[in-house]
Amino acid sequence: MREINLICINCPLGCPLVVEMEGKEVLKVTGNTCKRGEIYGRKEVTDPTRIVTSTVRVKGSKEKTVPVKTSKDIPKDKIFSCVTALKEVEVEAPIYMGDIILENVADTGINIIATKNVYSG
């Protein structure tokens, strides 16, 4: 059995959670004040994920970058592979919010999409 210490992110209380695990199995979450804490604790130790936001370079606009994000959350350990995959990406204006900028980023099955309209000119 091992214990993992986390801070709950659901509210300013920031409960110090202790998640007891056996292998990949969560035995118990303690230290939480409410149910949300337990749900967070379980997910964070078994399948931690994040939405990643970044920018990519733009050609053909007075804007220099377009902000982007992963269309869904991706595994936490893929964050750096995800932004590194954006390093060489350059897109041509116009770009519209929701446009797919990069498919299946870092083999996550998730796309990178634009979060802002960038017009040409």
């Binding site: 932004v83 590194t84 954006l86």
Partner: peptide, 10 residues
């Protein structure tokens, strides 16, 4: 510039 030092580990 953004990401200029990021390197692909693969």
């Amino acid at each position: 510039t953004n990401k200029d030092t990021l390197e692909d580990k693969e």
